[in-house]
């Protein structure tokens, strides 16, 4: 708590300093995702010269040696194992119409996590893995899953697990709508919100490695590669949707609904700037 308010004060100081500065960096600029990606990855490499590039996918563990050891031990009896079993079963379980979840995905859903989210030209929007799962269920007359845990976490955990080591390969097609979605996600990431007046970047760009209560903040680079995650605090698994909504609540902002446009666009942005980093999910967190 003390560290947290320290951080809040730092946030305030930055807000005030930054807001009184002339808006020099705000000249009209055209979106340039490849340049963003380069600058983003360079920022974290420069900030944490000792962290190996591939280790950024391990969230808080990349920031702290003690934690890193704990994590290695945890991986011997991973708490997400039950989710993998359930996920595998759900992928193959026939719907009432005889089809399966696996039938909705390329390569039956195996080893494809790194291709999500993608921009779907027909639907004109960003399709995350979680949305694709529920669209499949609904198209086959099945009840959609809750976006935050249980079956959704299990299915996405299994899909991540079968994709481990494959690098994020998120594409921004040459389509103004895709570019707009990317920009929207970027804006969401850097926009201050909630009573604490924090953006995602306040914690995950300016303060990775610092502690908030008992937790070590993960760097924004590679922050989605390990999703979904098992967290002791949740006594179970949580999806990307669960993490986004709980991070919004932490700054005393009312979260949006899981898979609302802003969250899908945010996931698009964050995944794109982590292109080249391997999928490591599912993750286990203290």
């Amino acid at each position: 708590m003390r560290r947290f308010s320290g951080l809040a004060m730092a946030g305030l100081a930055i807000a005030v300093a930054v807001l009184s500065a002339p808006p020099a960096a705000m000249a009209a600029d055209t979106p340039n995702p490849p340049a963003d990606l380069k600058a983003f990855q360079k920022f974290f490499k420069d900030k944490f010269p000792k962290v190996k590039f591939e280790d950024f996918v391990n969230g808080p563990y990349s920031m702290d040696e003690g934690l890193y050891k704990q994590w290695k031990e945890k991986e011997e009896f991973p708490p997400y194992e039950f989710a993998l079993d359930l996920g595998k079963e759900l992928m193959a379980k026939p719907f009432k119409n005889g089809k399966t979840l696996a039938d909705c995905f390329p390569n039956k859903g195996i080893g494809i996590r790194q291709d999500y989210p993608h921009f779907d030209a027909k639907q004109g929007k960003v399709i995350t893995l979680e949305l694709a799962v529920n669209q499949c269920l609904e198209a086959n007359g099945e009840q959609p899953y809750s976006y935050v845990k249980d079956e959704m976490a299990a299915v996405t955990a299994y899909m991540a697990y079968t994709s481990r080591g494959k690098v994020f390969d998120v594409k921004i097609p040459d389509d103004p709508r895709a570019l707009a979605a990317y920009e929207n996600g970027k804006r969401y990431f850097y926009t201050r919100r909630g009573q604490l007046n924090f953006s995602c970047a306040t914690c995950h760009v300016q303060s990775p490695g610092e502690r908030i209560r008992a937790e070590v903040l993960a760097p924004a680079l590679g922050i989605l590669n390990a999703m979904p995650i098992y967290r002791s605090e949740w006594s179970g698994m949580g999806t990307t949707s669960r993490r986004f909504t709980s991070c919004n609540s932490q700054v005393r902002g009312v979260p949006l609904k899981p898979q609302d446009e802003e969250y899908r666009d945010l996931e698009y942005y964050l995944s794109y700037v982590s292109n080249g980093l391997p999928i490591s999910g599912p993750g286990a967190r203290p």
């Binding site: 500065a21 808006p23 960096a25 705000m26 600058a39 850097y190 970047a201």
Partner: peptide, 11 residues
């Protein structure tokens, strides 16, 4: 924040 979000952007 409509414009000022850009001040925090990594570039």
């Amino acid at each position: 924040q409509k414009e000022n979000w850009k001040l925090m952007e990594i570039r």
